[in-house]
Design a protein around this nucleic acid. Sequence first.
DNA 1: GCAAGTACGCACCATCTGGTAAGTACCCGT
DNA 2: ACGGGTACTTACCAGATGGTGCGTACTTGC
Lengths: 143, 143
Amino acid sequence: MAKRTYSCGLEASLDVVGGKWKPIVLWQLSAGPRRFGELRRLVAGISEKMLIQQLREMQADGIVAREDFREIPPRVEYSLTEFGVSLREALRPLCEWGGEHMGRIGAARDRADEGTSPLGSRCGADYNEAGAAGSATAKGHGV
Amino acid sequence: MAKRTYSCGLEASLDVVGGKWKPIVLWQLSAGPRRFGELRRLVAGISEKMLIQQLREMQADGIVAREDFREIPPRVEYSLTEFGVSLREALRPLCEWGGEHMGRIGAARDRADEGTSPLGSRCGADYNEAGAAGSATAKGHGV
DNA sequence: GCAAGTACGCACCATCTGGTAAGTACCCGT
DNA sequence: ACGGGTACTTACCAGATGGTGCGTACTTGC
């Protein structure tokens, strides 16, 4: 990720949303602001260290806003910035495409797709629904 | 990239278009079929080994089709499959988003942006234009 | 002391991605 | 022989990403 110039816009975009955890974190934040511990539970399989790292990077990129309520115990809330929301909107078609084809993508990599399409995989769907299904998805996450 | 199940469609999509070279390769193939050597020259900075690797993976994912004309010297042509075209379409908004914000993305990473937005960076643009500008972009690629 | 809750930081390690430098095959021209 | 062209393969390495296991701070309850 040391590139300063990009051959195309896609490169630039993937600089801010690429990697293992950022897509999931972005998707979870799409449904509304989240506290650290809440995110930790929603993004199944992620360690605190990785979550902090991802949030910090996304914050540096202007995608995520961090609001510290200066309380004891500590209370911090993360949410998408306007910039992050615009990114989410630009990602919508790709989310839907991935949701429609994830079975094929998994199969093309010669992996047994034991966990069929989780309920929350349609990240372009209504967010009330996605929020509720998100918890179920997190439980079923096989990472 | 060993995941078989995905928390959201975005994860699945990024499995097939993530990494350093796939976005650029996909973008170059968007303008039409290309021979290996042609791609090599268009994707500035890529080694033959990396290009072959990326093409092979994209072929395995069903994004890219490889047509061997069985000639001497060898003549092989790569093009986007229908599946790849559908992916390209789903990526269009993200390409445009990245094109609009790439200056901000570069700045946010505290890098000197010596090479300002290359001409061909608007990957959502008319492809005749992008094709022509692609060569200029490739020459100016600073990777 | 231990546990739980809240949200982080640091040291070290494993794996993956990308890279270099060779090599393969065929052809033609000097 | 050398060079150029076409399109690949293999061995080995460097850096980036992700991970584990500790630690920090504050509170409360057992």
